[in-house]
């Protein structure tokens, strides 16, 4: 709000008011009597007085005696509500005793909001910049960022939470959209496999390096009897209740294979399953496009 408010007294003639408005290039002023707010007078009131030839009248005669005010302790939201409710261009800001403390316009609120948005945007930009440059800022012979996500067995409702978090992390780290898509799909399918098939859930671990992301998905059973068969499109051991929800189409591993630059699946019945997915973060990191070389290892 503006604190140094131009004001007039109730006895100010309208002709003098005209000069006050003209010189200060304003469209209205509060009216104070012995320091007390008694009204507000606008350029519209002045025009009406001029039209009616009432130029020598005192401001008291033409002013609005109950100006719309807002207390200085009230929130900006309250002020915005009052602007909308009364359709006025300015609000007089008063203290608890009704004394004028300033004047607030719609422009003041817009400027304030823009400054707040700008600060938030700036903070977000700094945060993103730092995240994107984490591998440059931290010096070591080999820097890795490891993200671990616990996945609960049969917790269908939480399906996609881990992969969604990983997707957001990659976005903040500045990965390419196509890479993010491939990582997110691979992680989601692997996460759902843990939820649907594992006995006790498992863990999804994403190790990020400047050039590559390696996702390891581990559980402690029951294990896959035939990895080759599990890899074939359409093969599924999901129970009916899972299929009714649209899972268990036997396409999860195939989708992962399609998205990965390399994939390795090891499983032992009664021991557990370990799925490793490698995705290069830059198109030229592996010297070729996404043509996955799938390595499968079956253990008995």
């Amino acid at each position: 709000m503006k604190r140094n408010v131009i004001k007039v007294s109730p006895d100010t003639p309208m002709t003098e008011l005209k000069e006050v408005l003209r010189i200060n290039r304003i469209s209205g002023v509060p009216v104070l009597e012995e320091g007390r707010l008694v009204g507000i007078i606008s350029i519209e009131d002045l025009i009406k007085a001029l039209v009616e030839g009432d130029t020598q009248a005192p401001v008291r005669k033409r002013m609005t005696t109950k100006p719309i005010t807002v207390r200085e302790s009230e929130s900006v939201v309250e002020a915005v509500k009052r602007f909308a409710q009364h359709k006025v261009g300015r609000l007089l800001v008063v203290n608890e005793q009704g004394e004028l403390k300033g004047i607030l316009t719609g422009g003041d609120i817009t400027r304030g909001l823009l400054e707040a948005i700008s600060l938030d945007y700036h903070a977000e930009e700094i945060s993103r910049y730092r995240a994107k440059h984490i591998f440059e800022d931290i010096v070591s012979d080999q820097t890795s960022l490891i993200l671990r996500y616990k996945v609960m067995s049969k917790d269908i409702k939480s399906g996609g939470k881990a992969s969604s978090k990983l997707k957001r992390a990659l976005d903040r780290l500045g990965a390419l959209p196509e890479v993010i898509r491939r990582v997110a799909i691979s992680a989601y399918e692997a996460e759902m496999n843990l939820i649907i098939h594992s006995d006790e859930g498992g863990e999804l671990i994403a190790e990020m390096q400047p050039e590559v992301i390696r996702i390891t998905v581990i559980d402690n059973g029951p294990g896959i009897p035939d990895v080759e068969q599990a890899m074939s499109t359409g093969f599924s051991t999901a129970p009916n209740w899972i299929r009714e929800l649209g899972f268990g189409a036997g396409m999860g591993l195939a989708n992962i294979k399609k998205c990965a630059d390399a994939m390795n699946l090891e499983s032992q019945v009664g021991v557990g399953t370990k799925l490793e997915i490698t995705i290069f973060l830059r198109p030229d990191s592996n010297g070729e496009s996404n043509q996955p070389e799938v390595k499968k290892q079956e253990q008995t």
């Binding site: 996609g160 939470k161 969604s164 997110a184």
Partner: peptide
Amino acid sequence: VTLQSHLNVVAVASLLG
């Protein structure tokens, strides 16, 4: 377009943008 209306529909839609 789908018959499914459970939570994972949101997960997949978000995943794919």
